[in-house]
Simulated assay, not measured.
Amino acid sequence: MTKPKVLMLVADGSEEIEFVTTYDVLTRAGFEVKSAGVDLKHEFAHMSRNIRLLPDSPTLLALPHQSAHQTYDMLVLPGGMPGAKTFAHNDAVLAMIANFRTEGKYVAAICAATIALVESERRYGGEGRKGKLRVTSHPSVRGKVEKEEGAWEYSEERVVVDAGVVTSRGPGTALLFALTIVELLAGKEKRDEVAGPMIVAETL
């Protein structure tokens, strides 16, 4: 079986727990994970709680970002409002989100990063999707999601999966978010295999 390939983005102000937890869990699952910086001021990302994180690629432009959807099975965006805002204002990121969705690849966003999904759809459209897409986010950006009438159905579930889009609420849901991604790309058996040694609580 081919290893699932996941591209994770990171920006200055991205949330540490959401990024590191997801990267860690996907790596434990044996996935090929690549991280790329978006509009970083330095070669590292200055995260929301002052941790400095060195991505695999310091800039998205160093990757074949225009064809990333052909290489990776999923695009993951961590939250953290400064970082999420960077994603939502970056043309390359918004185009990547649209390309992944058009090609039927997964896009995952946690916490405030859901606003990048909203902005990408506002700019590029829903690619023929019928009806509203169920999503969630951090409560602080709920209004930004619901403002786009007709496109989204807001949920307060901890993790929501709908039409290839995975969304989650915040740092406290990061482990469930990551394990959900593992199950989507590699099945429940792989999820259980990863969760067992981590002593994951039955209720996250």
Rank of each mutant, 00 (worst) to 15 (best):
T27V: 04
G30V: 15
G30A: 13
F31S: 05
K34W: 12
S35E: 11
G37C: 11
G37L: 09
H42L: 15
H42N: 13
E43H: 10
E43A: 14
A45N: 14
A45G: 15
H46C: 14
M47Y: 00
N50P: 00
I51D: 01
R52T: 15
L53Q: 10
L53H: 06
L54E: 11
S57A: 12
T59H: 11
L60V: 10
L63V: 09
H65P: 09
H69G: 03
Q70G: 04
T71I: 02
T71M: 00
D73C: 10
M74K: 02
V76Q: 03
L77E: 07
M81T: 07
P82A: 02
T86S: 06
H89V: 13
D91Y: 05
A95C: 11
I97Q: 04
A98F: 01
N99T: 04
T102S: 09
E103N: 09
E103L: 05
A109M: 10
A109Q: 09
A116H: 03
L117A: 08
V118A: 14
V118K: 05
V118D: 12
E121N: 07
E121H: 05
G126N: 09
G126S: 05
E127K: 05
R129N: 13
G131W: 03
K132I: 08
R134Y: 03
V135H: 03
V135T: 08
P139R: 03
S140W: 11
G143F: 13
V145E: 07
E149D: 13
G150N: 14
G150E: 14
Y154W: 09
S155W: 06
E157H: 08
V159P: 03
V159R: 04
